[in-house]
């Protein structure tokens, strides 16, 4: 491995959050079709379909931390990840990078801030341009952003390849000539080529076979140490999250239901949803167990249940849960949970 580069921007040694999410909402609405618009004009009340993908989330990520973001499909974890990465603006609320609102930045500054956060996607094929050689996929951004000069290009790309565990001799090839695990390494090399300090990994190992998944997870951990990276690791796989994360955030239908250090969550989950989720995870050490299954389905984010989103499936649901949204509040130092049961105790 060649010498490690310093993070591009010297950050104050105190560890204020690298990214802070404050009261963020993201709503997607389907615009009305012609008939509906006409009906509305004629005085009929037509409601637009609004999906509350992210429904009021606060979260801060400190420098050097690995935060695992867990949830089932449709819980808004990917949407949140995209907003954090600056790919998608929030409908409401603000996202702060080093204490500065992303939306208040402009021009050069905005670009530089965006470069500091990079994203790694689930499908390593869909996220690589099939018509570019992989050396261009990896090297294009640093060249455009002036991080490397034309004459140093080849050496720079080789270095990125080696760091991601790829043979630089393969750099003239196209993405389809690589296996899934190698493609994911290309995605990683591309993200790291612009010298980011923060990586958002959206289901980055979900599509890989177990033995390849282990290789990529090891690479993530090695890079974290070498480059002092911060990660937001989005996954539905609790085993992976448990292994990698310092802190775990659990989402359900657009809201954070629990947030705690990884060890605490996996030892004693507080929120009934987290408990249910953990009890359903198949583990290699449990033999011939009786699966029970959380009752009910994940509700549609188009029409989420009132009050606490989990109440129709919750074994402890009370009258209050149907009416009042539980606040995410601190239940122990560093642990937050959104459940009315914590008030009763």
């Amino acid at each position: 491995m060649s010498e490690v580069m310093d993070p591009p921007h010297a950050v104050a040694a105190t560890t204020p959050p690298i990214v802070e999410i404050r009261g963020v909402y993201k709503r997607f609405s389907r615009s009305l079709d012609f008939a509906a618009k006409l009906a509305r004009r004629l005085g009929v009340t037509v409601r637009e379909d609004v999906v509350h993908a992210v429904d009021g989330v606060d979260l801060s990520i400190r420098r050097g931390e690995v935060v695992g973001l867990v949830g089932e499909s449709g819980c808004g974890k990917s949407t949140l990840g995209r907003m954090v990465a600056g790919i998608m603006p929030p409908t409401e609320g603000s996202i702060l990078s080093h204490g500065r609102d992303l939306r208040s930045l402009s021009g050069v500054e905005a670009r530089r801030t965006k470069l500091r956060t990079q994203m790694i996607f689930q499908d390593p094929y869909a996220s690589l341009n099939p018509r570019l050689k992989v050396e261009d996929i990896v090297g294009e951004a640093p060249l455009v952003h002036g991080l490397v000069r034309r004459e140093d290009f080849a050496g720079y790309v080789d270095e990125q390849f080696r760091r991601a565990g790829l043979d630089p001799g393969l750099k003239k090839r196209y993405p389809h000539q690589f296996s899934g695990g190698q493609r994911q390494r290309i995605g990683i090399a591309r993200a790291l080529a612009v010298q980011p300090e923060f990586l958002v990994c959206d289901e980055a190992v979900a599509a890989l076979d177990v033995s390849i998944q282990a290789q990529i997870l090891n690479l993530f951990m090695k890079l974290r140490q070498e480059l002092d990276l911060t990660y937001l690791f989005i996954s539905h796989d609790l085993g992976v999250v448990e292994h990698l994360s310092d802190r775990v955030v659990i989402m359900y239908l657009g809201r954070v239901v629990e947030e705690a250090p990884a060890e605490d969550v996996f030892r004693s989950a507080n929120h009934p949803y987290t408990q249910a989720l953990l009890s359903e995870v198949p583990r290699i050490d449990t033999r011939k167990r009786a699966f029970a299954g959380v009752k009910g389905e994940i509700p549609s984010p188009l029409a989420p249940p009132s009050g606490c989103h989990f109440h129709p499936r919750c074994p402890h649901a009370m009258e209050r849960c149907r009416i009042e949204r539980p606040a995410l509040r601190e239940i122990a130092p560093g642990r937050r949970s959104a459940c009315h049961l914590n008030d009763a105790a």
């Binding site: 033995s211 282990a214 990698l244």
Partner: peptide, 22 residues
């Protein structure tokens, strides 16, 4: 294969991995 499963490894320690690919 069993060694690559994350829960079989110590938290945060490098996962034991099978080198190479299929």
């Amino acid at each position: 294969l069993i060694g690559s499963v994350p829960s079989r490894n110590r938290r945060g320690a490098p996962l034991s991995q099978i080198p190479g690919m299929t």
